[in-house]
């Protein structure tokens, strides 16, 4: 693992899976808050609140943790919605502090393509692109950029 300079966007993450469920059901799993809360997050039940405004430009927000000090969430906006075919949305990791300040990664972009497969199966293609490793670090920890100046050497060792 090499340190990635702040300005450099990483290559996209690609994922391709087939699910043993019909197309509409798989699409709904991505677009209905009650279902998101069941399967999304690091482990089942990790998403505490899910808000989905399913229209182009509409916001989505999946809250991962909430305590007195801060709320952490994944959030973004929908760029493209084709029912049972495609979802495109922006993506950011967000920390909202109790004092009203926010820290967030720069937006990356997620494209999910849905395709019916033989025997009531559904294929999903996920592309997560524009993850800016360095910039994300700088934003998420406000003031991180300064710390980072010293890190390349350490990480390379």
């Amino acid at each position: 693992m090499n340190y990635i300079p702040p300005s450099e966007a990483t290559k996209p993450i690609l994922m391709d899976r087939v699910f043993d469920a019909p197309l509409s059901r798989v699409f709904n799993a991505w677009t209905e808050p009650d279902q998101i809360k069941v399967w999304f997050g690091y482990q089942p039940g990790a998403v505490q609140e899910a808000e989905i405004d399913l229209k182009v430009g509409g916001a989505w927000k999946f809250v991962l943790s909430r305590d007195q000090e801060q709320t952490t969430a994944f959030t973004g906006h929908y760029l493209e919605i084709s029912r049972n075919e495609r979802l495109v949305f922006t993506w950011s990791y967000l920390i909202e502090k109790a004092d009203g300040t926010q820290e967030a990664t720069s937006f990356s972009k997620v494209t999910v393509d849905f395709e019916a497969s033989a025997g009531e199966q559904t294929r999903i293609n996920i592309k997560h692109e524009g993850i800016q490793s360095g910039e994300a670090q700088g934003n998420v920890g406000n003031g991180w950029a300064k710390c980072l100046e010293n890190l390349p050497g350490i990480l390379a060792s």
């Binding site: 693992m1 990635i4 994922m15 069941v38 490793s133």
Partner: peptide, 21 residues
Amino acid sequence: DWLGFYQSFWETQMSSLADHL
């Protein structure tokens, strides 16, 4: 290593979605 993080994140999501479905 956010790239590594999201790689494993999406893999986890796919397993979790498969279980859910």
